[in-house]
Design a protein around this nucleic acid. Structure first.
Lengths: 243, 243
DNA sequence: CCAAAAGTGTTTCCGATACACCCATGA
DNA sequence: TCATGGGTGTATCGGAAACACTTTTGG
């Protein structure tokens, strides 16, 4: 596309669709999974809740870049785990014009950031995954896809860590697995507290720090960290790291 | 974007990137995995081999639609298993202008179609996966990603069937698993012919037809089909169908 | 000293893997 | 009838899942 200086418009011999990025940002509050939403400040769907995101601009080096930029502008969230989800391209997604959206899913430590609105977003707020409002565009559908992806991922990749502080306890990590997978109440296999640490440690990339939580009402759980090196090498040699 | 009738150009207040779709089409020849490539008929990379694909046009109802259209035009391939792979958006992918590519991976019965060139493609040809030429753009990288995805998929989804006729034998299916996963020669677990049918049947969605192959030099293997219904219900109730 | 939560250890049992054997077919 | 590939059956071994018990901490 070339900018026509006199008209101030972008011109092209061929039709180009508009391209946006949206992010499904998950956070964990100790009990439930939450999604970060913004209140739209402009049309269409003005005043409705939506996923943070926006149009890719010329200076974005990649779609990921655009997501980082938008998240920073709209919600003050930085430095997160980000993975491409899917690209939504059906016609009719946006009432204005044809829009193709590259959706991402992200995992953050929920209370590490002070969420704020900004720019196109009047407000930014966390919503529990089971109490989502009606969202703008097809964003409810995008969240469904993201949740499904997360549920798949957690079986094989160490995604839980991204929702917790660098140092975490086994009970904390366990509660994340339960919140995401939500197994039936009689599922001892997943729910039994005693099996969980064994499985996790067997994966080989969780290291005890030797430290303990302090100021606990009861026995203080031990702290662990994610060993990125061990994970990478295990993955490189093609190890199947299933949970 | 709006078409300016007098200049014949598309105009927009905002910058839009160009969007293309590309497909990594896999086929199986009984021994090796193959990828379908086309020889580019136009600039850039004229004469180089590339993935089939092209620009999304206004009349495509979705990116998938665009892939089907391009595959039909360029290679005469129809009615295939198609899944979104990833969207490549880095700047510099195309020397002409900023291009975002939604990549798909596809599985077809290799000899079901008479491959032909057409339109932008001078020729279309199958290449064994281990003898790929230097490709245009970042298409070698896209194939790498597709292969990796296929290797992951085959553990949990019934992808092998799409590479075979509706009715297939266990040895045929087994050879696909070996071609894709390529386990070491001493890996009895995967290579032992005798374990394979048991594992497959235990998944619950492969049905024997009662028929046999005829005209075999030796004992004739039995024929099986993929039971789509059984697969869907198994998947719906969240069954983990691992291989 | 009690209750609640975390940690360690043990046993059982299922099911994948490895192995042996029999069958069908064309040459 | 023999060679080759295909099919059926079985024993074993490991490791996940279910279970029991001890330890720590604050109130």
């Amino acid at each position: 596309m070339i900018l026509n200086e006199t008209t101030g418009k972008w011109e092209s011999r061929y039709w180009h669709p508009a391209v946006t990025v949206d992010a499904v940002v998950f956070g964990f509050d100790g009990e439930k999974l939450n999604v970060l939403l913004i209140e739209r400040g402009g049309e269409p769907y003005k005043g409705a809740w939506a996923l943070p995101g926006g149009f890719i601009i010329q200076t974005d080096k990649s779609a990921q870049d655009a997501v980082y930029r938008e998240l920073h502008e709209e919600t003050n969230v930085d430095d997160i785990f980000l993975e491409e989800l899917e690209t939504f391209s059906d016609e009719g997604r946006d009432p204005r014009e044809r829009v193709i959206t590259i959706a991402f899913f992200a995992l953050v430590v929920k209370d590490k950031y002070i969420i704020k609105g900004g720019d196109d977003a009047r407000e930014a707020k966390w919503f529990p995954i089971d109490k989502l409002p009606e969202l703008a565009f097809d964003h409810n559908k995008i969240i469904d896809v993201a949740l499904e992806r997360l549920r798949q991922r957690i079986h094989f990749e160490p995604v839980g860590f991204h929702l917790l502080d660098k140092e975490f306890t086994m009970p904390q990590l366990h509660s994340i697995y339960l919140a995401i997978l939500n197994p039936p109440a009689d599922d001892k296999k997943l729910r039994d507290r005693r099996n969980f640490p064994k499985k996790m440690l067997k994966l080989g990339y969780i290291r005890p720090t030797g430290k303990k939580i302090t100021g606990n009402p009861h026995r203080s759980p031990a702290l662990y960290t994610f060993d990125e090196e061990a994970y990478k090498t295990a993955k490189k040699i093609g190890m199947r790291l299933e949970f």
